[in-house]
Design a protein around this nucleic acid. Sequence first.
DNA 1: GGCAATTAGCACCTTTTGAGTGCGCTTTGG
DNA 2: CCAAAGCGCACTCAAAAGGTGCTAATTGCC
Lengths: 153, 153
Amino acid sequence: MLQLTKRTEYGLLALVHLADREGAVASVREICERYPLPKRTLAEVLKDLQHAGLVESTRGSSGGYTLARSPLRVTLGDVVRALEGAPPLTTCESPIVLKGGGCEVQPNCPIRSPIQRVRERLWQLLEHTTLHSLVSGAPHVSLGALGAVESHR
Amino acid sequence: MLQLTKRTEYGLLALVHLADREGAVASVREICERYPLPKRTLAEVLKDLQHAGLVESTRGSSGGYTLARSPLRVTLGDVVRALEGAPPLTTCESPIVLKGGGCEVQPNCPIRSPIQRVRERLWQLLEHTTLHSLVSGAPHVSLGALGAVESHR
DNA sequence: GGCAATTAGCACCTTTTGAGTGCGCTTTGG
DNA sequence: CCAAAGCGCACTCAAAAGGTGCTAATTGCC
Ligand code: SF4
Ligand code: SF4
């Protein structure tokens, strides 16, 4: 399905919150006070984001999370990659489905390569949506990028 | 998850097959002989495509399906819409989740509107990928899309 | 007319995936 | 020492997707 998971949504909300209080640590509890999210699940998400290097954590009594990079250098793509893995789009490129030896159609699949291209475009779209463009709602997606790709053909 | 369903994949394969034999009817059996797909499921998919007006069906002994429109006028977006419904991206815009009264964060959700924009871009990406661009693998995605809109449609 | 092939419709079961929670451990400031 | 916070793992529960059974309805062909 073409839909972000709730985990990704939670992660984005958390990141936005962190972006607001620049530098200051924010605990899971604090975020949950602002947005009514399931505390534990959000904690899992933050942990994954920490693993991916998007946030830094401080443990202990007055601990919490802070952004690891500037909101300008955190993209939707980063978040999705951290929380869902790279979007496969097609089932064949999914790292999981390689169990059964992959898709049987693959040898003569007419749609594989074209869909691959669509996938790349989608990926670019995500990669060029910065966290900053989310907080400062205005300047939306920053898509000079996608235009550029088109022109060099 | 950011992934097309298998149903969509099956649908695309079927449509490509139909595009090859221009005008000639192709039965489910015939398609399954070319690609090793579960016959019954593919039948369901074709039926849905028929409902959406993407293909026309002829019943009876030598029946089957034909394309309802030129491959130039069938887009990936059409197929996805027919087989998965419009991509919600966010859980709030999903037609289903409106059961529980919607998202509780919504009143002061900082990411809703920005993600909405991303969703629109994604939708455009799908809408401007024609079936023709899939069969004649070459001219990839026809992405004047995101800037200048293509002539067809 | 009868038969075989094919689509139509609906309901059901199975598998997979995602969401959420239990529980104990570790760290750290007061 | 203690309370508050993050860490790690594994587990349950619910929803979605994938797939199948069965029974019509239609139509070409013998
Ligand atoms: S090879 Fe083709 S049919 Fe098989 S999973 Fe990839 S895109 Fe789909
Ligand atoms: S309102 Fe915001 S948090 Fe709630 S579902 Fe929509 S995007 Fe997600």
